[in-house]
């Protein structure tokens, strides 16, 4: 048995035309577009509010602004203690390192759980799932004390180091499920070819798990980019703040909130997430499906 990877270009349209009448296709697109509008609305509203003057945002609910105020962007960029580029850069550094950390450490652990057999495997797996089940609020104080003992307060270490140590059970579990779905014959074939567990992992399993890795990368990007509470607790210098911390500084329930500026900077901050998803999404689906097993 050998593995042949065969690309299938134009597969999408091949499938679309397969056994469907034109009417069925049209109806399907119509329904999908209708759902799409509901999904798009918040983004449209966000963009529209970001160019409205403060006083109009909540009075004029139409999507097309009656009055444009682009200064929300320029003012918002410089409204806080640091220019907004600092916050974007901080978030970017944390996100990139977190993705690298999660991909490396979680895939290693997942391969161990999914394809290797060793003493205590089931117990460890149950323990890992168990850590997902305890509400995070009761861990905050002990964690804070621990990181403070390590003298890691006001650094990025509490936000980053755990990611390099496979503490995110969600991603491990995700990859385990993907790896277990791969045919066992692959490992056998690799072993016959003389591959040890590491070569099998790196050469065979990882490339075939690209969708799971891409999913992990996208999910990590989104959750770390939006994470509020961790950075809030551990960072104290404004020049270390991440984007969500900065955004929350535009508003306070007791004061005169700068809504327009907040929406403008919100858009600036979701744009990279959307961009990352669009750029990365083709890897989400590059799996064994586009390949044949012969």
């Amino acid at each position: 048995m050998s593995i042949v990877l065969k690309a299938r270009p134009a597969e999408d349209s091949y499938f679309e035309n397969l056994g469907n009448t034109r009417f069925v296709r049209f109806r399907r697109h119509l329904i999908l577009c209708a759902i799409g509008i509901v999904m798009m609305y918040p983004l449209a509203w966000l963009i529209s509010s970001s160019v409205k003057p403060n006083t109009l945002i909540f009075k004029d609910l139409s999507l097309w602004p009656a009055q444009f105020q682009l200064s929300n962007y320029t003012d918002g960029w410089n409204a806080l203690q640091q220019p907004f580029s600092i916050y974007l850069m901080n978030s970017l550094v944390i996100v990139v390192l977190s993705i690298i950390g999660n991909l490396l450490s979680c895939s290693l652990a997942a391969y161990g759980f999914a394809r290797l057999d060793f003493g205590g495997r089931k117990l460890f797996f149950a323990l890992m799932l168990g850590t997902m089940m305890l509400p995070g609020h009761v861990l905050l104080v002990p964690q804070y004390i621990m990181f403070s003992k390590l003298d890691w307060l006001n650094t990025y270490y509490p936000l980053l180091v755990p990611n390099f140590l496979a503490t995110n059970a969600f991603y491990i579990f995700l990859m385990v499920q993907f790896m277990r779905a791969l045919p066992r014959e692959l490992d056998d074939a690799a072993r016959i070819d003389g591959c040890g567990p590491f070569r099998t992992f790196y050469r065979i399993i990882l490339p075939l798990c690209l969708p799971a890795l891409a999913t992990t990368a996208v999910f990590t990007f989104i959750s770390v980019w939006n994470e509020f509470f961790g950075p809030l607790l551990y960072l104290t210098d404004p020049e270390l703040y991440t984007v969500p911390l900065a955004l929350r500084q535009f508003m306070d329930s007791e004061g005169q909130s700068q809504w327009g500026q907040m929406f403008a900077m919100s858009f600036v901050s979701v744009a990279p997430v959307i961009g990352f998803f669009i750029a990365g999404q083709k890897y989400l689906v590059k799996g064994i499906a586009t390949t044949g097993l012969k």
Binding site: V93, D151, W152, T155, Y157
Partner: peptide, 12 residues
């Protein structure tokens, strides 16, 4: 990231 933002990785 590391060169532009050495901050955040200090002794704390």
């Amino acid at each position: 990231g590391l060169t532009a933002c050495g901050r955040g990785f200090g002794g704390g």
